[in-house]
Design a protein around this nucleic acid. Sequence first.
RNA 1: GGCUCCUUGGUCAAGCGGUUAAGACACCGCCCUUUCACGGCGGCUACAGGGGUUCGAAUCCCCUAGGAGUCACCA
Length: 483
Amino acid sequence: MSNQVRTRFAPSPTGFMHLGGLRTALYGYLFAKKMGGKFILRIEDTDQERFVEGATEVIYDTLRGCGINWDEGPDVGGEFGPYIQSERKATYLPYAKQLVKSGHAYYCFCTKCELDERRAAAEARGEVFKYDKHCLHLSEEEVQAKLDAGVPYVIRQNAPTTGETSYDDLVFGHMTFPNETLDDMILIKADGMPTYNFANVIDDHLMGITHVMRGLEYISSTPKYNLLYEALGWEIPQYIHMAPVMRDATHKLSKRDGDAYYSDYVEKGYLTEALINYLALVGWNPGNDREFFTMDELVEAFSVDRLSKSPGIFDVDKLTWFNAEYIRKLDADKYLELATPWFDQVLAGKGICYKRLAELMQTRTEVFNRVPEMVKFLGELPEYEAEMFTNKKAKTNPEIAKAALEMLRPVIAGIEDWTETTIHDVLMAKIAEAGMKNATALWPLRIAISGQMSTPGGAIEIAWLLGKDECLRRIDLGIAKLA
RNA sequence: GGCUCCUUGGUCAAGCGGUUAAGACACCGCCCUUUCACGGCGGCUACAGGGGUUCGAAUCCCCUAGGAGUCACCA
């Protein structure tokens, strides 16, 4: 039990769930569950200027909606709580002071303003700015005097300037960094809050995190974290850094392009299961050809050593294909339930049989937001051009189309039993009697009653959905257009 | 710029010294067919470049190029 795997997802509550973050959470969950361990949710809100109302709920709802459930977290509790960093404020300062005492950290009274100036000056000289340990050289008396005088301060890590620090990453392998590149990062801010850099180390240790899984943007600060663990006498966790999810070769998914957040996709009509399934495969693969996974199957198949080191481009086309596949596998009733609001956008009150329409639409639906445009013609005949009656393969032109419509109209008008079977049998009999190719008569009919080049279903299905009266009305309109 | 990392088709990717270099999406044909879609069949396109090591390299080493990340009192 003591060496049980414990992973955590530690998002900052911004109000949105980025797909990259969602994938990080997913992998953390999969790994913990695969290893029979625990998955912990921790909210990292140490930056009070960024507080967003309702942001933690977005995190809860998204994760739960995706089937990523945490064993410990703010709302479910756990023995290492609280799980919201702002509520843990008091726990960090003592550790920082301990570090000061042992020489691994020091008080710094340089103001942000001064530092900005020095940073700008360094940049102007074309140099990389690194804190010069100015305040490290203050005497104990000087420090105490400033503290007593209430001068604002931060606490900085005292990083070594020579030698090197290395660690083993489960994805990237052995990583080594020259210590001279390590900056004395701030541990405690002037407002008394810890920085992410510090809180994360303290909390990961206190919460017994065994495997730290996060984006590779933390790779280069990891040596500084390790120095902290060592200074505190704590065991360093295993690291699993992950390459990012990209929009294209050089850009990450972005808010600006409306393609970065989980909610963007849900609103467009992507199914959560499809999104999770696809997302799992950007940066990870099971080592075989398999592509379809439920959450439980992902847990079963997951392994850290199949995580990719290179960034993965989020391919909306592939996601859309997954979505279409998931939609096709839905029970007919479920599809109907999900499609109804989209049908309603353009067909509310039009008397169209949604059940039959749903049957017709299910194999044709890739993403739900494309549904309204596809079925709109049932509610209202769109404007269309007479040229549409001409089709080479169906061997039709305006004259032939007109003749076909005039031939079919009375037959349709005579149908008493308005069922697809009857409509089909009656029309086919008439067409055969006339010695025509099916398409030669049915193409014009479908164009006349739909006004579209392509429709979900053929002339017979469309006719039935429309009802006899509307069908005849549209045929007359078509004949008039061809006159 | 310093540091760290990455590089197989348009995209996701298999491959871990010997393969005709998988598979999927996309795209393009053909079939099915009353349109479209589904389904079936087929096709197109890849080891970033250059040096080594080796009988043999996509696989190991070096260099170059390109790309990413990082260098905040943000996380």
